[in-house]
Design a protein around this nucleic acid. Structure first.
Length: 290
DNA sequence: CACTTGACCTGTCCGC
DNA sequence: TGCGGACAGGTCAAGT
C-alpha cells in the first residue's frame, strides 16, 4: 500500500473534501472489500455526517456523527478518490498527474454517495484492502491497533525510543524489522530502502549488529525521507493516487528505490536490486556494506 | 516467543 | 501474439 506518507496525503485531502458531508448511499460489490452487515450500514453509515479523517500507521479512520468509524486499509493497490458532483466526473479529461479516468471503473469496490451528489470511490485492483464499519470507541481494540508501534513523525518520538523498539527483533535483518509495524508504524518497502541508503546501512545487517550511532542515522533518515515524501504528495510507484486522483511526485526524488542500473547519487556506483526479507530491495553496493 | 515463508488477488512485464 | 513465470507500495496465518 501506500505507506505512511501516501496515507497521510489521502487523509489531508479528504479532510479538505468530505468533512460535514452526509452519506446517502453505499454500494459494495465485493464482500471482502467491505464485509459489514447491511443492518449496521443502514443504521450507522447511511445518514451519517463525516466529522473527521484520521490516520494511524497505514490505516485511515473516517469518523462519523453516529460515533461509528470507517476503518480503511489500502494495502498494495487501494485508492480513495473523491469526485465532486457530475461535471468533474465526465468532464474534459483529467489533469496529467491523474491516474484515474471516469469512475467507477473495473477496480471500484465500494462507492459512497454524498447528499450533494459527490462521491468517494474505494478502488482496489488486487482486493487486499478493506473497509470496515465499527464503533469509534472500538477502533483501538482492533488487534492491529493494539500491536502497532509508535508514529515515527511525532515530535516527541526520540532516537532513543526508536533504537529500543528494535531489541525484540535482534536476530532478524534491519530491513525486516523496519517493515515490522509493531516496531515502528508506517514504514514500507519504499521508505525502508530510501532510509537505509541515507543511513548507509546494508538492509541485510542483523539488528543485533547495528550500533547506537547507526540506529540514530536510521531514525533521522526515516523521518527525513517520510517528511519529504509528504511534502511531495507521496510516491506513485504504480497505482497510488491521492484523494483527488492525482499522483504523488516523491519517485522523482527517490535515491535508490526502483533505480537499479542507475548510479548512486552519492558515489556514482551502480545501484543494484537484491532480495531481503522476501522483498525487492535496492541498494548502493559501495555505500551499504555487510 | 521470534523468525520465515506462503497466501491472499489482479495485472503487467519479460523471455521464449 | 501467445503462454508461463516472476513480480508488485502489505499484512496474516501457518510452519519451524
Amino acid at each position: 500500500m501506500p505507506e505512511l506518507p501516501e496515507v497521510e496525503t489521502v487523509k489531508r485531502g479528504l479532510n479538505k473534501l468530505i468533512i460535514g458531508k452526509t452519506i446517502t448511499t453505499v454500494r459494495a460489490d465485493n464482500p471482502k472489500s467491505f464485509p459489514n452487515a447491511e443492518a449496521d450500514v443502514r443504521k450507522f453509515l447511511v445518514g451519517a455526517n463525516v466529522t473527521e479523517v484520521r490516520r494511524r500507521a497505514k490505516v485511515l479512520l473516517i469518523d462519523l456523527s453516529t460515533d461509528y468509524t470507517l476503518v480503511i486499509h489500502l494495502k498494495m493497490t487501494g485508492q480513495l478518490v473523491y469526485i465532486g458532483s457530475q461535471d468533474e466526473r465526465f468532464g474534459a479529461g483529467h489533469p496529467t498527474d491523474s491516474l484515474v479516468g471516469a469512475l467507477p471503473d473495473k477496480s471500484t469496490r465500494v462507492i459512497f454517495h454524498f447528499a450533494d451528489d459527490s462521491h468517494m470511490f474505494f478502488n482496489d485492483q488486487r482486493k487486499f484492502g478493506w473497509v470496515r464499519l465499527m464503533p469509534t470507541s472500538e477502533v483501538p481494540n482492533i488487534d492491529f491497533m493494539k500491536r502497532v508501534g509508535p508514529e515515527p513523525l511525532e515530535a516527541d518520538f526520540t532516537s532513543t525510543e526508536f533504537a529500543v523498539r528494535f531489541k525484540r527483533r535482534a536476530k532478524t535483518t534491519i530491513k525486516a524489522a523496519l517493515l515490522d509495524q509493531s516496531v515502528v508504524a508506517g514504514v514500507g518497502n519504499i521508505y525502508a530502502d530510501e532510509a537505509l541508503w541515507g543511513a548507509k546501512i546494508h538492509p541485510s545487517r542483523l539488528v543485533e549488529t547495528i550500533k547506537p550511532a547507526e540506529f540514530k542515522r536510521i531514525y533521522t533518515e526515516v523521518r527525513t525521507v517520510m517528511n519529504l515524501s509528504i511534502e511531495k504528495g507521496g510516491s506513485t510507484n504504480r497505482n497510488y493516487v491521492n484523494a483527488e486522483g492525482k499522483k504523488g511526485s516523491y519517485m522523482e526524488f527517490a535515491r535508490v528505490f526502483r533505480r537499479e542500473g542507475l548510479t548512486c547519487p552519492r558515489c556514482g556506483t551502480e545501484i543494484i536490486k537484491i532480495r531481503v526479507a522476501g522483498r525487492g530491495t535496492h541498494i548502493c553496493p559501495n555505500d551499504q556494506r555487510l
